[in-house]
Design a protein around this nucleic acid. Structure first.
Lengths: 109, 109
DNA sequence: CGTATAGATTAGAAATCACGCATATATTAA
DNA sequence: TTAATATATGCGTGATTTCTAATCTATACG
C-alpha cells in the first residue's frame, strides 16, 4: 500500500554519468514502435520478419528502429544464415521493461 | 539472483493505448536535465530556484523543462506567494523513478 | 509609487528525429 | 549464374526538440 521507497539516498543517481546513461537508454525505449518491439521481444529471440509481422510497419522502418536499439546497446543480434535474430541484450533492460509493465498496466494509479 | 520476471504475459502491454501512454511518460523523463530534475526532487517539494541551483542551467531552460514535465502530468505545482514548488505528481512515477535508480545504479549488470 | 526577485513565456536558430523510398548486401534456391 | 528472400543503409524532407536571449507577469519590499 505504501511505496517502501527509500528516497533518502536518491543521490545514487546524481552522478552525471549515470544520469546520461539512464536517459540514453530510456530515450531509446521511449518510442511507441520501439517499445512495442521490446514488448514483442520480451525475453525471447525473434527474427526481423517476425517483428515486422507483429508490430506492423515497413521492414525498413523496423530495421531503422532496431538499429537504434542495437546501437544504444538495448538489443543484441545473432545472425543465422539468412536471418538476424534480435533479443534484449542485458538484464537491466529486461528488468526495467517488466517494471514498466507493472507500472503502466497495474491497478496502482 | 534471478529476475523473477514473468515474461509469459508480456502482452499486458500489448494494447496500443498502454504502449502510447508508457512511451509518452518515458519520453518525458528521458532527457538528462529532466531526469536530473526528477532525481533532485525525489519525493520532496522544491522551488524552482533550488532546482536551478542544484541542476545548473539557465532559469529559463529549467522552467521549460519543468513545463514539459508538468504538462505531461509528471509534476505538480503549488504556488506560495512569490515561489512555485514542484513535486512528483503521482505514485507511479515515483515508483518508476525508484526502480530506475535500482536498475541503473545497482550492481546487477 | 518604483524596484527587485521568482517564474513563465515567446521567438528563432540549430540540432535531432521519424519515415518513405530507393538501393545495397548477403544468403539461399533453382 | 540467375532469381528470390531477408535485412541493412543512404538520402531527402518535414516534424519535433532544445537551447539562448529577450520579454512579460506576479509578488514583495521600501
Amino acid at each position: 500500500m505504501n511505496m517502501a521507497t527509500d528516497w533518502g539516498e536518491v543521490d545514487l543517481m546524481d552522478k552525471d554519468e549515470h544520469i546520461e546513461q539512464a536517459s540514453r537508454a530510456m530515450k531509446a525505449m521511449s518510442h511507441p514502435l520501439r517499445l512495442k518491439i521490446l514488448c514483442v521481444l520480451g525475453d525471447k529471440e525473434i527474427s526481423v520478419q517476425e517483428i515486422v509481422d507483429h508490430v506492423g510497419t515497413s521492414q525498413s522502418n523496423i530495421s531503422q528502429h532496431l538499429a537504434i536499439l542495437r546501437d544504444k546497446g538495448v538489443l543484441r543480434t545473432r545472425k543465422v544464415a539468412n536471418r538476424v535474430f534480435y533479443r534484449v541484450g542485458d538484464t537491466r533492460t529486461l528488468k526495467l521493461l517488466s517494471m514498466m509493465r507493472d507500472v503502466f498496466c497495474g491497478f496502482s494509479k
